[in-house]
Design a protein around this nucleic acid. Sequence first.
DNA 1: TAATCATATTCATGGATTTGAATATGATTG
DNA 2: CAATCATATTCAAATCCATGAATATGATTA
Lengths: 122, 122
Amino acid sequence: MIEEQKINIDPLDAQTQVFKILTHPARIAILNILRDGEHCVCHMEAYLGLRQSYISQQLAVLREAGLIQDRRDGWNIFYRVVNPDIYTVLDAVQKLTGQAVGPSNPVASCNCPHCMAKQSSG
Amino acid sequence: MIEEQKINIDPLDAQTQVFKILTHPARIAILNILRDGEHCVCHMEAYLGLRQSYISQQLAVLREAGLIQDRRDGWNIFYRVVNPDIYTVLDAVQKLTGQAVGPSNPVASCNCPHCMAKQSSG
DNA sequence: TAATCATATTCATGGATTTGAATATGATTG
DNA sequence: CAATCATATTCAAATCCATGAATATGATTA
């Protein structure tokens, strides 16, 4: 009776995989940063106030899970979300918990082309 | 620069808490069983083919997280989902992964009043 | 090709999670 | 109150995960 597994739990693994990725404040914070398009690693560093290597670790997790993609532009590497459906998940949990997380440090910027452009024009 | 934590990661904890609960095939399977209303533990046992004490362990996790509630009716204890918003989260991930999980063993039944009623009437 | 820049990887350790096995609880019936 | 039923809890071992520290990579510039 115990050996006879009635339900095939395996199809759920793809789902638990995603949840596992999201079980991490820094990774959720990174995804939230990427809501408005691609950003470089140094930007996240300035924004989150976390060590570079630590952010890279979390980016690697997100990347290997297929949730984000990177693109090199000169010195910087820009990350973007692959499938915006991930935000449906995040939004659903925000609604469930009533814990919306606004932009934490909108003025933070780095020396990447994106931020430099914003600084000179704004 | 490293000591100065720019973002307050704490608000994200409520969200990661929920994700942590969902990082578990059996717990997701249980929640899916409860989609159509309350069910007793023996029903889940028959449905999932997992040991009773194991299911109780997972029910305890879900219960302590405030996601489900129990109600005793005679010998049986019936569980139900507290806030159906949890299914918005599950549905979002199902869409993201393309992994829909249908009813695995719809004929499974136990001796609880609910299942007995279905058997005699159907 | 050496220096520099942004970013990535590796590794070790402490801490958390999973899960099987055994046992406990508490309502119900006789 | 003893037996029985459905369900819950405890505990320990194995495994998994988070994170700091150190170091590596690989494009770019001089």
